[in-house]
Design a protein around this nucleic acid. Structure first.
Lengths: 135, 135
DNA sequence: GGCTAAAAGACAATTTATATCTTTTTAGGA
DNA sequence: TCCTAAAAAGATATAAATTGTCTTTTAGCC
């Protein structure tokens, strides 16, 4: 249960790599993919998603590539994970409350909300800056 | 990310239903399945897993069925979920540390451990007794 | 115009989830 | 002992999600 997918794992690897570079440095997707050991075509899809929401900036053509969209201390792990995995919802009924009307009052529901809150809290407390610094 | 599967959802529904009955009451699988709106054959598989680890007791033949293996206040939601979903591991590298030796020190690893701890903590704090009482 | 590199979309393989069906085992009752 | 009830176990089937790849298009630079 609750496992991050490959996609999520790859997404983190890729963007953490970027976060470790100077903010204005433009990196080739192929270089990033090679550095973090991810299939380039797959990482391309991931970075397209990042790009759409501004987590990274992309540049086409000669000299093109990717750079971080904001300073790494202003990007949380939560944003990164939710960007590619979708919202963190431990149970469908948390996402779609209408789904939870089985037998009126469901006692489990609030538990899942608490789980959701805790997880989001942890991930929201971690920035790409911390993750990219050598520990 | 982190979604409970149907199996997990069904498992909880089924065992919470049992927890709402008198401890020594033997329930037919078919009755439980009907009551909590779960495919009976699927629920059978789930209860087999429960039975193996003693979460429920099973009786075959005439007058057979299932009853709770322990008092509901002594069964946590964590046990139930892990019984059918397997251990709660937000990332493979948390489950298999050898998998995490990519580039030496991985800063994300401890974050996933924290997530794991928080989730397990929440689920461990909830018992079937609470879940089966009307709120 | 020609080269480079990302964007977008279609497609394919594999794995996981979600069941169902059949056969076997165990127990109780006539 | 035989019949019936009910769970256990195993095989199989379908659907959906994951994990990619490939091709074509668009954008930018020389």
């Amino acid at each position: 249960m609750m496992e991050l997918t490959r996609k999520g794992e790859y997404a983190i690897r890729g963007i953490v790599y970027l976060a470790g570079k100077p903010l204005d440095k433009v990196c080739l997707l192929s270089d990033i993919a090679a550095a973090v050991d991810v299939p380039p075509t797959f990482l391309a899809k991931i970075f397209q998603q990042f790009s759409k929401i501004g987590l990274v900036k992309s540049f086409r053509g000669t000299g093109g590539g990717f750079m971080l969209g904001r300073a790494p201390e202003n990007i949380t792990l939560l944003e990164v994970v939710e960007a590619v995995e979708g919202p963190i919802v431990p149970n469908r009924c948390v996402a779609i409350p209408a789904n939870c009307d089985r037998s009126g009052a469901c006692n489990v529901h609030p538990v899942w909300r608490r789980v959701q809150g805790e997880v989001r809290g942890v991930l929201n407390g971690v920035t790409l800056k911390e993750l990219s610094e050598e520990g």
